[in-house]
Computed example of a mutant assay.
Amino acid sequence: MSRGPTRRAPGPRAREIRDAALALFAERGYAATTMADIGAAVGMRGPSLYKHVGSKQELLAQIMTGTMDDLLQTFRVAVAGCEDVVERLRRAAEAHVRYHARHRLEAFVGTREIRSLEEPHRTDVLRRRAAYESAFRALLAEGAEAGRFRIATVKLTSYAILDLGMGAAVWYRENGDLTEDQVVYQYGDFALRLAGVH
């Protein structure tokens, strides 16, 4: 059983290794990727690679916990200083979609490889994921109680809004017909409609 991710100085080499692992996990899957594959992608052999990272499991945990920490911070920044619950929901939904449009590989690996995490990493990631979902549900519940939202089920509405980001991660491309801002704004509208805002 692995221990929690080792806290290492996030130097440029460590970031390069993390990015190579992310790309390989997305392309081949965690199970089919070896540390030798990751080393080859950055031009490093075993002994040098292990100076920067302890294990493949540690890399996966760093990617997934880092992604959830980024999402939680993005949410907090998006809603900070805003009193209106409708505007907070729009800002949170737009930030959620924008993050997923910019971090497609993290979204893909985060969804597919949760089963590959060992303890305590799996519990750490699931706890962060639950906190993120709860933040959206708290917004929806507040708006419903204030009469600003008309929703049948807070839980299902939160899932539907969160799915907007996951969907954008699948299909959005920077060179597509729609700009990132266009996608984000329209998806913000979709989130408000899902919440029953008129």
Rank of each mutant, 00 (worst) to 15 (best):
L59A: 06
L59G: 04
L59N: 06
L59M: 08
L59K: 05
L59T: 02
L60I: 05
L60N: 05
L60P: 04
L60A: 00
L60M: 06
L60C: 04
A61F: 00
A61L: 06
A61T: 05
A61Q: 07
A61W: 02
Q62G: 05
Q62E: 04
Q62A: 00
Q62F: 00
Q62C: 02
I63K: 01
I63T: 02
I63G: 05
M64Y: 00
M64T: 01
T65W: 00
T65M: 04
T65P: 01
T65R: 06
G66A: 03
G66Q: 09
G66E: 08
G66M: 07
T67C: 01
T67S: 12
T67A: 08
T67D: 05
M68C: 07
M68S: 10
M68Q: 10
D69T: 12
D70I: 02
D70R: 12
D70W: 00
D70A: 14
D70K: 07
L71V: 12
L72P: 03
L72W: 05
Q73W: 08
Q73L: 13
Q73H: 13
Q73Y: 03
T74V: 11
T74C: 11
F75Q: 03
F75G: 01
F75S: 03
F75I: 06
F75H: 14
F75V: 04
R76D: 15
R76C: 06
R76Y: 10
V77G: 10
A78S: 14
A78M: 12
A78H: 14
A78K: 12
V79D: 13
V79W: 08
V79M: 10
V79T: 15
A80G: 07
A80C: 11
A80M: 11
A80D: 14
G81F: 11
G81V: 09
G81R: 09
G81P: 09
G81A: 13
G81Q: 09
C82V: 15
C82D: 13
C82L: 15
C82S: 14
E83N: 12
E83W: 05
E83H: 14
D84A: 02
D84P: 03
D84W: 11
V85R: 05
V86W: 03
V86F: 06
V86L: 03
V86M: 02
V86T: 09
V86A: 02
V86R: 08
E87G: 05
R88I: 07
R88Y: 00
R88M: 02
R88F: 08
R88T: 03
R88P: 07
L89S: 07
L89R: 07
L89K: 10
L89D: 09
R90H: 06
R90Q: 14
